[in-house]
């Protein structure tokens, strides 16, 4: 059966890059002795499919990968056995059975993500910035320079910001993610800083991803569902 795992990556684990997290889970799955499916050949490897790579330095409460098990198991048992193998900073939050086949691949489903941006100690905008966020968000267009592989070009990121609000001392964002338009929160923060006329040091913000969504809406109407909600609990 195909299982979708949701996990959290916090604390010092934010320094471990995406490829190493993949290797980390391959080992954790072996330690948990889950009946994982392997590829054929001289060096068989597990088939794990991660939804959206997370940059070094970013924490997350909503990371996903899919894996193929050779037999059916209660999803809570999968979650629990894998969670037992986690180090400090890593938690397995849920396991869900998801439909087989390529259409359901975690990576191709990704359409949006939630982020929380907080300032590291000693950094921040001048007082009163919170009140100006609604005006920033209310703009028709937000033009920023985006570096692509070939050039730097001006892009309007406003259509990719779905929601934006101040929560306590942090800024909460829901933005477009995935293969079509992947908006990094850093870019929004740069635009906000420019809007406020403030300087923003590259180390000012601690970003946390909180959820990753698929778009299940029809006829161009967006309907976001967390990736785990596309799967089912197996008792």
């Amino acid at each position: 059966m195909k299982v979708r795992i949701k996990f959290a990556k916090e604390g010092m684990m934010k320094f471990i890059g995406h490829l190493d997290i993949m290797r980390y889970f391959q080992k954790a799955i072996r330690r948990a002795e889950l009946p994982i499916a392997y590829s054929e050949g001289f060096s068989p490897h597990m088939i794990l499919s991660f939804a959206a790579p997370l940059g070094v330095g970013v924490t997350s409460l909503g990371e996903y990968f899919d894996m193929e098990l050779t037999r059916d198991m209660p999803t809570e048992e999968v979650r629990n056995r894998l969670d037992q193998e986690m180090v400090e900073g890593m938690r397995v939050l849920s396991a869900r059975r998801v439909p087989d086949g390529k259409a359901g691949k975690a990576m191709s489903l990704v359409a949006a993500a939630d982020y929380r941006v907080t300032f590291r100690e000693g950094y921040g905008f001048s007082d009163g910035w919170k009140e100006k966020v609604p005006a920033f968000f209310a703009q028709d267009s937000i033009l920023v320079y985006r570096k692509t592989k070939r050039s730097e070009k001006e892009t309007d990121i406003r259509p990719w910001i779905y929601r934006m609000e101040v929560q306590g001392d942090s800024l909460w964002l829901q933005v477009s993610a995935g293969s079509v338009a992947n908006l990094k929160p850093d870019l929004v923060m740069e635009a906000l800083a420019a809007f406020l006329g403030e300087e923003l040091s590259p180390f000012a913000c601690q970003v946390q991803r909180e959820e990753v969504y698929a778009d299940v809406g029809k006829d161009g109407v967006r309907e976001l569902k967390p990736l785990e909600a596309l799967g089912e609990v197996v008792a």
């Binding site: 320094f15 900073g89 590291r120 180390f203």
Partner: peptide
Amino acid sequence: MRKLALSDEILL
């Protein structure tokens, strides 16, 4: 959580 000897800024 353990406190690290190096700041985020250095580690990053």
